[in-house]
């Protein structure tokens, strides 16, 4: 009877997935109580939970998260809109594509963090520099996915637009963009995800607020619980951003799973 309920809920599988976290918790707690490691290097799970609660209560957590999200949003908007516009231009015009793609490919070879010294030298380490740094990271996935979507509009839709004499903005709005939409949404998801990754890195370079700042100052003050709390926050927000956009992606491309005439 109990077995049946287990099976129906897929509980067995879920329990299996809990083995590793559970063992880790035991080892972790055990290591702390047996004083295998210094309290400075490993804090017990409960302390971490307490730290998270205290950070949340004091408002530190939310103000740091908001500071980071604010940077992400601005950097993402700058980088992704640049990538979007350029992606459309390169997708629509073979001439623009041929002219720009070698340059884009060359610049793309440069690892994101190698730009940081350049940006700091040019703009200092203020807010604007961080926005630019995030924008560079957000730019590429948006550019590539928009380009793929736009250049991948099937010929048959181009023909249809020609027959019905669709031109310029009407053509773009009614045929090209809707057709490229799933790819563009993928671009937004990847682009936003990378922005969230890079904001933490940008904040390591020095700032007064943000999740990355919280972790770096935690490290300097040897508050390992704060550093670990930062990890939990990074993971949770990264997961949520990805999850929400993936839902959107599925929803928007849901109505048009490869369809070319079904059974009569």
């Amino acid at each position: 009877m109990i077995k049946k309920i287990f099976k129906r809920l897929g509980l067995k599988d879920k329990l299996l997935g809990l083995i590793v976290p559970f063992l880790l918790l035991i080892i972790w707690q055990g290591a702390v109580t047996k004083h295998l490691f210094s309290e400075l290097l490993v804090v017990p799970p409960l302390t971490l939970l307490n730290t998270l609660i205290e950070l949340a209560k004091s408002g530190d957590l939310s103000s740091n998260i908001l500071a980071s999200l604010n940077r992400v949003l601005i950097g993402f908007l700058i980088g992704a809109s640049g990538g979007f516009i350029l992606g459309i231009a390169m997708g629509l015009s073979p001439i623009i594509n041929r002219t720009l793609s070698p340059l884009v490919k060359a610049l793309q070879q440069v690892p994101e963090f190698a730009w940081m010294p350049v940006i700091i030298l040019l703009f200092g380490i203020d807010e604007f520099a961080k926005n630019i740094f995030i924008a560079i990271g957000a730019f590429y996935p948006m550019l590539f996915n928009t380009y793929l979507g736009v250049s991948g509009v099937p010929d048959k839709y181009h023909e249809l637009a020609q027959v019905y004499q669709y031109k310029s903005h009407r053509y773009l709005a009614k045929v090209i963009l809707p057709s490229a939409l799933p790819s563009i949404i993928t671009g937004i998801r990847l682009s936003l995800g990378l922005s969230w990754v890079f904001v933490v890195g940008a904040e390591f370079f020095g700032t007064e607020a943000g999740v990355g700042f919280m972790m770096i100052s935690g490290r300097q003050l040897f508050q390992i619980d704060v550093v670990m709390a930062g990890l939990v926050v990074i993971g949770t927000i990264g997961f949520l951003l990805n999850y929400v956009l993936q839902l959107l992606e599925k929803k928007l491309s849901g109505g048009r799973v490869a369809f070319d005439g079904g059974i009569a």
Binding site: V20, M215, G238
Partner: peptide
């Protein structure tokens, strides 16, 4: 079975960007 045991933890840890680990790893 291995998938059911390990992949939930793997996927949870994966959500944390690697850059985020740097302060902790340096402390360790």
């Amino acid at each position: 079975t291995a998938e059911k045991i390990f992949s939930p933890s793997f996927n949870a840890v994966r959500q944390i960007s690697i850059i985020g680990w740097i302060p902790l790893i340096v402390m360790w």
